[in-house]
C-alpha cells in the first residue's frame, strides 16, 4: 500500500514511519514564551518533526492553520481569549485531519465536562519531552482519542 497523502495528512496507523517519511509539521500554541521555547527545543531534537510555527492564542492558531499546512497542534489549555478548549473544538471542526494535543498543568479530570467532547488528546505539561512527542505520534489512533 502506498501512502500518497501530503505531509499535513495524518497517515493510517499501520503505515506510520514505514511509508510516509516526510516530517510532521507542528504548530505550538501557548501564550507564555518559556514553554513555547521549550517545546520548540523538543521538536528540534526529535526526528520526523519540524516546527511549522508558533502562536500565542487560539485565534492566532486558527488564522495560521487557514494559511499553512500543519499535521499536529500542540496547544496550552489555559490561554487568554477563546482558550485552548474552544480553539481545539474549532480546529477539529475546520481541519479534521489535524491532530490536536492539548497540554495542561492540571489533570484531565480537573477540566470541565465538555472538554472530553472537543476531539483533542490531552497531555500533562510537566511530563512533556522528546519521548512523549514520539509516543504521541506512534500511538496513532483517531485524533480525538
Amino acid at each position: 500500500m502506498v501512502m500518497l497523502a501530503p505531509p499535513t495528512r495524518r497517515p493510517p496507523d499501520a503505515t506510520i514511519g514505514v511509508v510516509d517519511r516526510s516530517p510532521v509539521r507542528v504548530l505550538v500554541v501557548d501564550d507564555l514564551p518559556p514553554f513555547r521555547r521549550a517545546v520548540a527545543g523538543v521538536i528540534a531534537v526529535v526526528d520526523g518533526f519540524v516546527l511549522a510555527g508558533e502562536a500565542t492564542s487560539g485565534e492566532e492558531a486558527l488564522g495560521f492553520l487557514d494559511e499553512h499546512a500543519v499535521g499536529m497542534v500542540l496547544m496550552d489549555v489555559n490561554m487568554p481569549g477563546m482558550g485552548g478548549l474552544e480553539a481545539a473544538r474549532r480546529i477539529r471542526g475546520r481541519h479534521p485531519d489535524v491532530t490536536v494535543v492539548l497540554l495542561s498543568v492540571n489533570d484531565t479530570e480537573e477540566l470541565p465536562r465538555e472538554a472530553m467532547a472537543v476531539g483533542a488528546r490531552y497531555r500533562h505539561k510537566d511530563r512533556f519531552g522528546p519521548d512523549e512527542l514520539e509516543a504521541l505520534w506512534k500511538d496513532g489512533g483517531s485524533a480525538g482519542s
Binding site: 518559556p34 514553554f35 517545546v39 523538543v42 512533556f128 519531552g129
Partner: peptide, 17 residues
C-alpha cells in the same frame, strides 16, 4: 510555574542531546 515546567522539558531535551 511555567518556567519550571519549561525547565523540566528543557532538561529532557538536554538529556536526549
Amino acid at each position: 510555574q511555567q518556567r519550571l515546567v519549561a525547565a523540566a522539558v528543557q532538561s529532557r531535551v538536554a538529556q536526549r542531546l
